[in-house]
């Protein structure tokens, strides 16, 4: 069991993702939702950093928030799992605690 980190801001708007990755311990999970979903996409200025972090933490992205922004699941970085709200709930219950990087 480990910590679930939630990031809800775009990495092109705030430094929440940077702060999160700077603090997340190996084995932790990061859920990208709301505008945070932009960090899950291939071919962006942060995708290399996210791919590298996948060696240390697990990444999840909220599918409904991808679709609300017209982003396609097949453009999500390999290794990031797409979840729905049920999956969000399961992530919360399967981790010891939740840290929101607001």
């Amino acid at each position: 069991m480990a910590m679930l980190h939630t990031v809800n801001k775009s990495p092109f708007e705030r430094t929440a993702l940077q702060s999160c990755l700077g603090h997340a311990l190996e084995g932790a999970s990061v859920l990208l939702f709301e505008d945070g979903v932009y960090a899950a996409m291939q071919g962006t200025a942060v995708s290399a950093q996210v791919s590298e972090a996948l060696g240390k933490v697990r990444f999840y992205v909220l599918g409904p928030d991808l679709r609300a922004r017209g982003l396609r699941e097949d453009r999500v970085i390999d290794g990031i799992q797409v979840v729905d709200y049920d999956g969000f709930v399961d992530l919360v219950t399967s981790h010891d605690n939740v840290q929101a990087w607001l």
Partner: peptide, 26 residues
């Protein structure tokens, strides 16, 4: 919930998360 409704998405996310948790029996 730290943010008002219709201002970004926090209230919508909180509502949908709460509903999903209740629907799953939590």
């Amino acid at each position: 919930v730290n943010e008002g409704p219709y201002n970004h998405q926090a209230s919508d996310s909180a509502y949908r998360f709460t509903k999903a948790a209740l629907d799953k029996g939590h």
